[in-house]
Design a protein around this nucleic acid. Structure first.
Length: 875
RNA sequence: GCCUGCUUGGUGGAAUAGGUAGACACAACAGACUUAAAAUCUGUCGAUUUUAAUCGUGCUGGUUCAAGUCCAGUAGCAGGUACCA
């Protein structure tokens, strides 16, 4: 049996001594490849999701290295964040100690997996070095007006006691805590990502796959596009019918994407937080109460869909800007959002579902201004929300199509100084303050005299104090008197440090640039970044489709504009995008079981009966097998990589997790299937022993050069080997790992059945080398060990070279022609490649099976596809 | 509601460019070896009909000599997203 424990540990020692994973810079004519997997949070243990993610990266790194690329393949730790602080609260261990311990454990686990990371390039975001440099970047962002302080409502997570970014609120609940978020007004630091909204949107076009470059998955591009949410329309003012005393403005400004429906307006609605609402609330208790009531409604998805659209009639009237005769009521409405557009809308009930609902509720007029078809006279069903039709009841817009009218309405509004054309984005600025200890301190000082004062760069870094306690709720920095109180760098008077720390997405927004040279004294080494950027293959989970990937793209643009990377020639397609291709891997799933009460059971406690149903081993109680779900502790269906490695070895696990499923689809964990992989590894091992005995190769037999003369037998063997080399190479180029493995199994079978005693040694050696190199990226320990045993090299063999495919040998001389009669397969025959149509015609009709089906019929037509197929049409 | 995917045997999945559907596995069944078990090897394995054939890639149509693949419609599943003006 294959002794994986011995083999794997021996090769780990060899790799370490020989520094096989050392990063080598590409020389002039060499091609570079930057392969990056999303770095993990150091929770302390690798899970199967990590294993899948990093195995994909490693297979590609080993394959590309064998093909001659110079590879940058680094690994690090996204090591700031709340779990460390939670551990401190729960177990009394310092976040730093906890994190460092976890990093060490996980580094060892990754090394055990045999991944080709260059550990000299390791980066940990909680290191003083990393976050100190990050503070420089923050100060530069501040200087460049990309950071600002904002007093506003924020998403407050009552469990975590912290602010969340919009992206961290999922269905109105905290992304980590899962509890409903409440609105709270506090001052916070904000990053002006919206300044780059247009570029972030526009560049998505360049991230589509082109030619050889796979690009980003369409799905992720769509998600980002929707997140940025560009819409264009008109911002237009509805003037008050009578001047409002003490209110500075003389109307309500609204934003609309459908200015052509202005003649159908029947009300205006403003957000409860709108300044006019606030103004009215001061004078009217009822309005004040109504606003309070609106704000109490939680913003969860289910609350939103069940909450009725209610409004408060302010009694104030405005004039329709296109029809000054028309008076329009102003409502304060709970469905108008202050954060989107200008916090005010006009309602056209005839052509908008929500406005229709509102108008029906409050008995407002509903006036149709669009006729679905120019010549239809039927009574239209309202609301009619399509944008196909002809304008009616709309004065100067009458007779125009909807889109023509939209353009004319905007132009008219602009000409008459009623409003302006405007584009708005759904994307909001990024709130980066966190009321937490375990993060990068924001290098700012609050001074009573001078206001906000950035920490001077010469005074950096602002280090996290280590003597902190977690025995009380809230932020330990906030109550750390010694650290908190400083003198103002401007006026020298007592002042206070900012005690908020940065969102951890801040660290992951530039780590890929740091990786190019993690030892640089500057945050980013321009030359190194020039050498390695962009990341050619970025591999990670789809869950980062908008969060991390949007921030990282923004950072790349901002850093470039601030001069951090000004000389970088990122790529020919778009030199401001950091990730050329993105591979998103699927989840690792496992069947989970529930008993009759709905409790999740451990698969180990469950037995399968011959009839396919499942019972609990102990009690014989019937249980339900739930469809395979993502491995998670709550479902009790987690398989620990360590246990698997202990029982089957690293190569089995690596090979298994790449088999069976395409990398971007969910992977079904199955112990039986893993057994199958283990059997395959052993089969390969036995085949090696067998070949070694038969052939007794030496290193000298391995001359992979075109040979002058190849005998018939040799050609036959090399044809098999090179055909599969070609298939596997293609599969790997297309990231079709599971079919690459399937082809390798076919190759193994073909070689097992081959009589090696008939061929000369060097041809046999070449075939065996191909057999080894094609499985090497998946099972590196096995492949290298097998090489040692088979070829007994004088010096330890560490690097495989991907052989050139001998196209001349794999050319086929003959092929199988499929013969159809009336489109149905009736027989096949073998024909030489390039056989002419007449020959194929004749041979096809000669087949007895074909004769049988055309018997008595008249042949109308014969379609011949060269080297492939003949279709006889008979009637 | 809207957007994006997906739907192929008992299961995971193959199928360049429309051209032999089900590669490679898992499970199952049968056999060989063995005192026995494990391991290994061999065979069967979409459905219906007893050899030959017919049907078969969610469903209904269409284009084509030929459709899993292209087009239109439709259902189901998954993911994303939303009082977005």
């Amino acid at each position: 049996m294959y002794n994986f424990k011995k083999v794997e540990s021996e090769w780990h020692k060899i790799w370490q001594l020989a520094k096989t994973n050392k990063t080598l810079n590409p020389k002039n004519d060499e091609k570079k490849l930057y392969i990056l997997e999303m770095f993990p949070y150091p929770s302390g243990k690798l899970h199967m999701g990590h294993i899948r993610n990093y195995t994909i990266g490693d297979v590609l790194a080993r394959f590309k290295k064998a093909k001659g690329y110079k590879i940058l393949h680094p690994m690090g730790w996204d090591s700031f964040g709340m779990p460390a602080e939670n551990a401190a609260i729960k177990h009394g261990i310092h976040p730093k100690t906890w994190t460092n311990n976890n990093v060490q454990a996980m580094r060892e686990a990754l090394q055990t997996m045999g991944f080709t990371y260059d550990w000299d390039y390791e980066v940990a975001t909680h290191s003083e070095e990393y976050y100190s440099l990050e503070q420089q970047i923050f100060l530069d962002l501040y200087e460049n007006k990309l950071v600002y302080r904002k007093d506003a409502y924020v998403n407050w997570d009552p469990v975590e006691n912290t602010v969340l970014a919009n992206e961290q609120v999922i269905d109105g609940c905290g992304w980590r805590s899962g509890v409903p978020i409440v609105k709270k007004k506090i001052p916070h630091w904000c990053i002006k990502i919206t300044k780059y909204a247009e570029e972030l949107l526009k560049n998505l076009e360049d991230l589509k796959g082109k030619d050889e470059v796979p690009g980003w998955p369409e799905k992720v591009l769509t998600m980002q596009e929707m997140w940025i949410g560009k819409s264009s329309g008109l911002e237009i003012s509805f003037d008050f019918q009578e001047k409002i005393e003490d209110f500075a403005e003389n109307g309500i400004t609204v934003f609309t994407t459908r200015p052509e429906t202005l003649f159908g307006a029947s009300f205006c609605a403003i957000a409860p937080e709108h300044k006019f609402s606030t103004f009215l609330a001061q004078k009217n208790q009822k309005i004040s109460d109504f606003i309070k009531k609106c704000q109490e409604i939680p913003s969860t998805e289910c609350a939103i869909s069940t909450t009725e659209k209610i409004g408060f009639d302010t009694g104030i009237f405005v004039k329709n800007p296109f029809n000054k005769e028309q008076s329009i009521k102003v409502y304060i409405a709970n469905f108008v959002l202050m954060e989107y557009g200008v916090g005010a809308v006009f309602g056209c009930p005839a052509h908008d579902e929500r406005d229709f609902e509102f108008a029906t509720r409050y008995n407002l007029s509903i006036k149709s201004v669009i006729k679905p078809e120019s010549n239809s006279s039927q009574v239209d069903v309202l609301p009619y929300i399509e944008t196909v039709g002809i304008m009616i009841n709309s004065s100067f817009l009458d007779g125009l199509s909807v889109l023509e009218a939209r353009e004319k309405a905007i132009q008219t509004a602009e000409q008459q100084n009623l409003g302006v054309r405007k584009t708005i984005y759904r994307l909001r600025d990024w709130t980066v303050s966190r009321q937490r200890y375990w993060g990068c301190p924001i290098p700012m000082i609050h001074c009573k005299n001078c206001g906000i004062v950035p920490v001077p760069k010469k005074d950096l870094p602002v280090l996290l104090p280590e003597d902190v306690t977690f025995d009380q709720p809230g932020n330990p920095l906030d109550r750390h008197e010694k650290w908190k109180h400083v003198t103002c760098p401007k006026c020298g008077k007592p002042a206070q440090r900012e005690t908020d720390t940065l969102d951890t997405f801040f660290e992951s927004s530039w780590y890929f640039l740091r990786f190019c040279n993690p030892h640089s004294v500057k945050p980013i080494d321009k030359l190194a970044a020039q050498r390695w950027m962009p990341v050619d293959l970025y591999i990670g989970g789809i869950e980062h489709a908008v969060l991390h990937l949007l921030y990282a793209r923004f950072f790349s643009m901002a850093l470039r504009d601030m001069g951090y990377t000004e000389h970088i020639e990122y790529s020919k397609v778009n030199d401001r995008e950091p990730f050329r291709s993105l591979l998103t891997q699927g989840m690792v799933c496992h069947t989970s079981f529930q008993d009759s009460k709905g409790n999740w059971l451990f698969p180990d406690d469950v037995e399968k009966l011959p009839d396919g149903s499942y019972i609990l081993s102990k009690t014989k109680e019937k249980v339900t097998a739930v469809r395979a779900e993502k491995m998670s502790k709550s479902k009790n269906n987690v398989v620990d990589p360590e246990t698997t490695i202990e029982a089957y070895g690293v190569d089995s696990l690596r090979l298994f997790i790449m088999s069976d499923s395409p990398y971007d689809k969910d992977f079904q964990w199955s112990t039986e299937s893993l057994d199958g992989t283990w059997r395959y590894l052993n089969k390969m091992w036995r085949f090696c022993e067998n070949i070694q005995e038969k052939m007794n190769f030496s290193e000298k037999d391995l001359i992979i050069l075109p040979k002058k003369e190849i005998g018939e037998k040799e050609a036959e063997l090399l044809k098999i080997a090179h055909t599969y080399l070609s298939k596997i190479t293609n599969a790997l180029n297309q990231f079709s790992f599971h079919t690459a493995i399937a082809f390798h199994r076919e190759l193994t079978k073909a070689l097992e059945n081959y009589d090696f005693s008939q061929v000369i040694k060097d041809a046999a050696a070449e075939a065996i080398y191909i057999w080894l190199v094609t499985i090497f990226p998946f099972t590196p320990h096995f492949a290298l060990e097998a090489f040692e045993i088979l070829f007994k090299p004088k010096e330890i063999h560490i690097d495989f070279l991907w052989p050139e495919i001998r196209e001349d040998i794999i050319q086929k001389e003959s092929t199988t022609i499929a013969v159809q009669v009336c489109g149905k397969l009736r027989g096949t025959f073998s024909a030489p490649i390039g056989a002419d149509d007449a020959f194929l015609h004749e041979q096809s009709l000669a087949l007895p099976a074909v004769q049988k089906f055309i018997n008595g019929k008249q042949i109308k037509k014969v379609i011949i596809i060269k080297d492939k197929l003949v279709n006889v049409i008979a009637d």
